[in-house]
Structures are given as structure tokens and as C-alpha cells.
Amino acid sequence: MKAFTEITSSLLPLDRSNVDTDAIIPQQYLKSVKRTGFGVNLFDNWRYQDPGVLGQDHSQRKSNPDFVLNKPEFRNAKIILARENFGCGSSREHAVWSILDYGFEVVIAPSFADIFCSNCYKNGLLPVALKDSEVDYLFEQVNANPAFMCKVDLNEQSIIDEKNNSFAFQIDEFRKYCLLNGYDEIDLTLQHANKIKEYEDKLKHSSPWLIK
């Protein structure tokens, strides 16, 4: 996994709550058996006016100029700013892959859905939960000035904006450690392979119907 330490960027203001993973990447693109190439279909139903299919040349499609992702002033944003319960719905990890593949590295929202959050951590996308009032403030700033910049510092667990306001955020120690170092969780788990085998041996005695 790619490590994450800090980033300074403008923000994409996606002023919606309950942005579900069907909206982040619609079903037809889940037919892919790869992990890459989903960026061009991020927010597909909002971003294009015509329907799309996997594998077509999406540059030929009719884009929706009103959708915030298509506005030139937000083209360089690497942080998505959204409302509560971001990433709800389907467990599709394609949602995280498409956000990363497009070039975003952080999502800021008041809250995130549980499965989306675990998917973020496995791929090096940082979900940052801030208070409602802080998210309101950031929307106000970005709406007034699309080039408004923030620095997201994982080590310090803080966001500092260009006016020097700073907001702290919480993250599990373990998740932070994995993100900062880009660790692969499977490797970490396999360090406990003996414990897993011991557990299975016990299980064979206590609950033989579960394991042969």
C-alpha cells in the first residue's frame, strides 16, 4: 500500500450528504476484474449526461458542466469535502479505487460509513471526520474562494488552512501506523500465524462442526 503522510491542496466541495458508493461508481463498472482505471468513472452518473459502459472511450461522452468535478477551478483539488455519511451503501472497494485513481488522497466529511472507512485504510485514502461546524466553515471558505488551500498532516492528526486555523481529527493508532508506513496488513497478520493455528486447534475440540 502507498504510504500517506501529508498533503497540501485545494478542496472539491461536494455539498451532499449520504453520498453512496453507487453514486461514487455505478454498477456497470464493477464488471472489471482489475483494480485500476476507475478514475474516469468516478461520480459517473453526475458527471456525464449520457450513460456509459465499461471499456468505452469516456472522453467522447457528454460531460455535465454543472457538476462540481467538471469545473475548471477545482481541477487540481486532491481533497474531497462532503457532508455526513459519506460512502454509505454497497461495500464495493471500487469506490475507493476510483477516488484514488482520479487523484484524490483525502476525503473530509462529518462522518463516514463503516465499510467505506475500512476500504480507505486498506488503500491509502485518508478519511477525515471533522465536526459539522468545521465542515460548514470549510464549505464557506471554498465557496468564497475555490483556490482555498488546506494542509492535511496525518502525523499531527490536524488540518491547517491557509488562514492558519487548525482542526484536529481522530484516527486509530494502528490505522495511522499502517498508513504512515504504507504497511500491508496481511503481512502484519501473518506474523501471528501461530496464534491463528492454535485457535484452530482449540476450535477443532470445542466446535468440531465448524472446522474439520
Binding site: R35, S91, R92, E93, V96, D114, I115, S118, N119, K122, N123, D172, F174, E185, I186, L188, T189, L190, H192, A193, I196, E200
Partner: peptide, 23 residues
């Protein structure tokens, strides 16, 4: 019983376990 992402699918295939905190 709960849903997981594809990286977690891989994690279970490889280790029969998941890393998580109690909710």
C-alpha cells in the same frame, strides 16, 4: 455476519482473520 471490501476478502483468503475493533 458483515460485509467487507475486496482487500479484506484477500485478507481473509490469506489469513482466515480480519483486523478490526469491536463496534
Amino acid at each position: 455476519a458483515f460485509g467487507i471490501g475486496t482487500s479484506e476478502v484477500e485478507h481473509v483468503l490469506a489469513t482466515q482473520c480480519l483486523l478490526m475493533k469491536k463496534s
